[in-house]
Design a protein around this nucleic acid. Structure first.
Lengths: 305, 305
DNA sequence: CGCTTTTAATTGACTGAGTCAACTAATTTG
DNA sequence: CAAATTAGTTGACTCAGTCAATTAAAAGCG
């Protein structure tokens, strides 16, 4: 559950933007089009050759309603429809010259409306607003998420991110208290303070500048590599990132001549456990503890390299 | 005239967000309210005592239409109206208990809707989206009263946030290496691990669910409180948050019977230095160091309570 | 293959959200 | 103090949007 203050902020913005869009959409007032008409015409104009079903789904319109709009457009000679040769039920929609003219006219109007608003802004403000819009879109639009997750070494801020995300996650999910976050911070802090680039490493999984996961290898001495702080954000589960991170650890440890990897985890973390098992780790010891409030089952796993 | 590409991007976002809001507003589907009803009820609920004219202007509604909505609300016993004593034409609108219950119910629904969407996002993504929303709003909404920043005690994730934001900031701004972030993590980790709620405290400055600043007081022994990790995010400088955080520290330390506050900082941090000076701290020692890469001037300041 | 089920698009039959103009009553203007 | 303006209400209407039923093609299935 996301924190309430964030949600309230988002709602607040939505109210504001509902209003704002309402104003912008007055642009259609002195045209023969409603907002919905305009949306449909725009969608057809920019994706020539769509069919009605797709249109209805994309714009979340009632098929019956859409059908009537299209009928009107056909009568007005804005569009033409022809049955899809591969599916005779489906109609392929194309814009006529007249329709395209209308489409462009609407675009002009819409642009003018926004330009008028933007022209009242200081230099750079419009840029900043549009950049922010892109940010929102890339996050909220499921179709606009082509950015692939990458795995890279840590840099400034990443260790803090690890502390923050783990601290928050275990508190929310398992009710662990802040001592856990404290432990993570100490472990992570020591890692940085005594960082030995020859024998230690930190991997961060990231997508579009947003961190999604992490893991690190520290030198436990005696030829033992310690795998620590494996974490994958809830938004990125099921992409195989956890597995990839662990694989990086194993490959690195082999390369560096460690003879064993050891790790400490808790039995409630089923997904992590599955990854370790699959990678060949074996459970060597287990003990109940209440280090962070609720009772938990600490486990030590090792992998001989 | 703003450049076309910017405008097109904004339009693109508007189309996307029109769609997005359309989906969110399905939340009202199984209530007796339309979106407009909900907007009106919300506006009344959060600005008790408005009049119809103001409402119509703020929400850009037809006065006739609004009048009918209000009539219905009056009949349903959600609101009461009484003539404004200073202008007998005008009606002052107040919510009844029943109305307030509805208002809160709608709020819940709306929150749940957004929470559901946010729960599919990475932690940082939701934050980034809301931050971007705030950016847009502050630019496009002329009367955007930026949500007030609050100062609150720390909770899960906050200590990690401190590490992250300081680590990133000092690296970007002053080129300090990761040992600095390591030090912060260790300090912060120890604070949590050995937290003494009687004599220690952490303050977080937050606005709309987004952290903006922090400071903590740890027990240095011998009646000395240590002020550590004062930080205010770039986005919130100049609001007096730094001063407020330090004031909290001083008041807390007095209350708890400390005889002195001591802190360690670096001379390049001019804004912080000004705050300390103004609060009555005095510089007691200074030494050059290269703890984090570039040469820097460490300073110790104390305040006798 | 034939039978049922699903899917694309359309049509019939409504309804109620939102608009526009006219009106009352209080207030402001000149 | 008459004329103009403003706050709010009511009458009359329309058309955007909904829901259920229908047709026809395609897909699923034993």
């Amino acid at each position: 559950m996301t924190q309430l203050a964030l949600i309230e902020s988002a709602r607040d913005f939505n109210r504001f933007y509902t209003n704002f869009l309402g104003l912008l959409n007055k642009a259609y007032l002195d045209t023969p089009f409603t907002l919905t008409d305009a949306r449909v015409l725009f969608e057809i104009g920019s994706h020539d050759g769509v069919n009605a079903g797709l249109l209805a789904r994309d714009l979340h319109l009632d098929p019956a309603y859409l059908s009537r709009i299209l009928k009107r457009f056909r009568e007005e000679d804005f569009i033409e429809t022809s049955p899809d040769p591969t599916d005779q039920r489906s109609q392929i929609i194309t814009v006529t010259g007249k329709g395209r003219a209308q489409f462009e006219e609407l675009g002009q109007r819409s642009n003018a409306q926004i330009a008028a608003r933007f022209d009242t802004l200081a230099d750079g403000e419009a840029q900043a607003a549009v950049a922010a819009m892109r940010t929102i879109r890339s996050i909220l639009d499921p179709q606009a998420k082509p950015a692939a997750a990458i795995i890279r070494p840590h840099r400034a801020g990443d260790i803090g991110w690890i502390v923050q995300s783990q601290g928050r996650f275990y508190a929310e999910e398992y009710g662990w208290d802040l001592r856990f976050e404290g432990l993570v911070a100490e472990v992570a802090g020591k890692f940085l303070a005594n960082f030995d680039p020859e024998m230690e490493y930190c991997w961060i999984a990231e997508r579009g500048g947003i961190n999604l996961g992490s893991v690190l290898i520290t030198n436990g001495g005696d030829g033992v590599a310690k795998l620590r702080l494996l974490y994958v954000d809830k938004a990125a589960r099921g992409l195989g990132l956890g597995r990839q991170l662990v694989d990086e650890c194993i490959a690195f440890s082999r390369r560096k001549g460690y003879r064993q990897i050891s790790l400490w985890t808790n039995d409630i973390l089923h997904a992590a456990r599955a990854i370790y098992q699959k990678a060949g780790f074996r459970l060597v010891s287990e003990e109940r503890h209440r280090m962070f409030g609720p009772e938990a089952n600490g486990q030590t796993w090792v992998l001989d390299l």
